[in-house]
């Protein structure tokens, strides 16, 4: 029973890893499109954090599932993941706080339904 489960896992591993890597790349593109489309700096931060969280998670998880991964590489992938998850919000908060302190005003209220007022 366990043997068959392991065999199925080993067969599915490269496909699942590749699919997760591809999903991560697509999520990175989606986050970048959001950064390009959103009207002002503070809303762009939200789009950039999609890349920081879900794209990084899916790409690193996909790479960990690939059959070339040894334990040494898996530990490094996990370290990169933890590092991105700790430093990502810190630098985002630093940028947002610096912009807020410098007096950059955020756009408040509904955007886009009407004329789409410029930031």
């Amino acid at each position: 029973m366990i043997e068959t489960a392991l065999t199925i896992f080993e067969t599915l591993r490269p496909w699942a890893g590749g699919a997760l890597c591809l999903l991560g790349g697509l999520l990175a593109i989606i986050g970048t499109v959001g950064v390009l489309r959103f009207p002002d700096f503070y809303t762009r931060l939200h789009a950039a954090s999609v890349t920081d969280t879900s794209a990084a998670t899916s790409l690193l998880l996909g790479m960990a599932l690939l059959p070339e991964t040894t334990w040494l590489i898996a530990v490094k992938l996990a370290a990169i993941w933890v590092f991105i998850f700790i430093t990502g919000p810190t630098s985002t908060h630093a940028a947002a706080s610096a912009a807020h302190t410098a007096g950059l005003q955020p756009v408040i209220g509904r955007v886009g339904r009407r004329d789409g007022d410029k930031a």
Binding site: L59, I84, G88
Partner: peptide, 20 residues
């Protein structure tokens, strides 16, 4: 700040691309 955000996000993607 938009540029700083772009550089930061660029760096994150570069890390992922390097690993890939």
């Amino acid at each position: 700040y938009d540029r700083v955000l772009a550089v930061n996000s660029f760096g994150t993607k570069t890390v992922l691309l390097l690993a890939l």
